[in-house]
């Protein structure tokens, strides 16, 4: 038996999200003292480093990850070949598109968006996930002999326990895709929002797109990713992929700094799982303060540059 962890590199390297998943897989495998095998989809210059996270075997196979048909066929075949009883994927666009298919192929129970290492109870796997946009959580029992789960970003800290491993190619019959990938755009620079540790987010309190420089400077100083409230994206002050909340991206960074955002329930739904929330708002009655850990009541145009300066000072100490 084994636990199979599927890792998607981005632009030829495995990033923090991949190492998180490896640690998650390792801890899940430890529950039943089985092997943890990672399968890397495509080339990654640092694939061998997965061994550092206590993985037993690192395999690769190159497939078009955008094609859920090929993705699912490949993973289902790999699971059979490697005798996997638990298959772990990342809860991102490709992982979500494939997980359900894999579950059907393997007659496996599926739970997605898992946010904590499972508990094993005999042959039953207990998993926890957020529901109602982070307003509650639910625990499920998966009773099928094979289990498929997708794991949210930032659910576990990568834990280095071993040494790098050699990487070998997994030999499976090639599956051809019927799709044509016309274009792929990736945003370079900052970490994608669902993976970011630190997020600085702005709302309508900024009054207009021309005022975003102070937020960007704060984000740069922290090495944070930027986000915004929905009306800000709707008005095209900021790009749509920055929109967080119930109808935007759901995030759970270590630090979320909300500036000039009132804290409407639909906004909170996407950010309330953040570990630490800081709110800067000139209105002491803003609902966001109720969900915050730290707050400053004040004018953002004065507070934000001061905060940037104070962080610069800390970094130079």
């Amino acid at each position: 038996m084994s636990v199979l962890v599927v890792i998607e590199p981005s632009a030829g390297i495995i990033n923090k999200g991949g190492f998180e998943l490896a640690t998650f897989g390792k801890e899940t495998a430890a529950l039943s003292a089985t092997k943890c095998i990672t399968l890397v989809l495509g080339n990654a210059s640092n694939a061998g480093e997965l061994g550092i996270y206590g993985i037993d075997e690192v395999l690769t196979i190159d497939i078009p990850t955008y094609d859920s048909v090929v993705y699912a066929k490949t993973i289902a075949e790999a699971s059979k070949k490697l005798d996997a009883s638990i298959v772990i994927l990342k809860h991102n666009a490709n992982g979500k598109a494939a997980a359900g298919r894999i579950a059907i192929k393997l007659n496996a129970g599926l739970v997605s968006a898992v946010n904590a290492v499972p508990v094993l109870n005999g042959a039953v796997l207990q998993v926890k996930r957020g529901v109602y946009s982070g307003k509650a959580s639910a625990t499920y029992a998966i009773s099928s002999s094979i289990k498929v789960i997708t794991v949210l970003g930032n659910s576990i800290k990568p834990n280095a326990t071993g040494n790098a491993l050699p990487v070998s190619e997994l030999d499976l019959p090639k599956v051809t895709s019927t799709l044509e990938l016309i274009d792929r755009k990736t945003m370079s620079g900052r970490a994608p929002l669902p993976e970011a540790d630190l997020v600085v987010s702005g709302g309508r309190g900024f009054k207009g797109p021309e005022n975003w420089d102070i937020l960007l400077e704060l984000a740069d100083t922290l090495g944070a990713t930027t986000a915004c409230s929905r009306p800000v994206a709707d008005a095209d002050w900021r790009p749509h992929h920055e929109h967080v909340g119930q109808t935007g991206v759901a995030i759970r960074p270590n630090l979320y700094i909300a500036i000039g955002i009132s804290g409407a329930i639909q906004h909170l739904a996407g950010v309330n799982s953040s570990k630490t929330i800081v709110v800067i708002n000139k209105d002491p009655e803003a609902p966001f303060f109720k969900a915050a850990d730290y707050g400053i009541v004040g004018d953002l145009f004065e507070v934000v540059p001061k905060l940037t300066a104070a962080i610069k000072k800390l970094k130079h100490e």
């Binding site: 859920s68 699912a72 979500k96 598109a97 494939a98 997980a99 359900g100 298919r101 579950a103 059907i104 192929k105 599926l110 997605s112 968006a113 957020g130 529901v131 109602y132 946009s133 639910a138 119930q246 109808t247 759901a250 739904a269």
Partner: peptide, 14 residues
Amino acid sequence: IDYNGAEVGAQLAE
């Protein structure tokens, strides 16, 4: 937006 699973689609397609 209640169970935020994004699970039905892939299973249906399969």
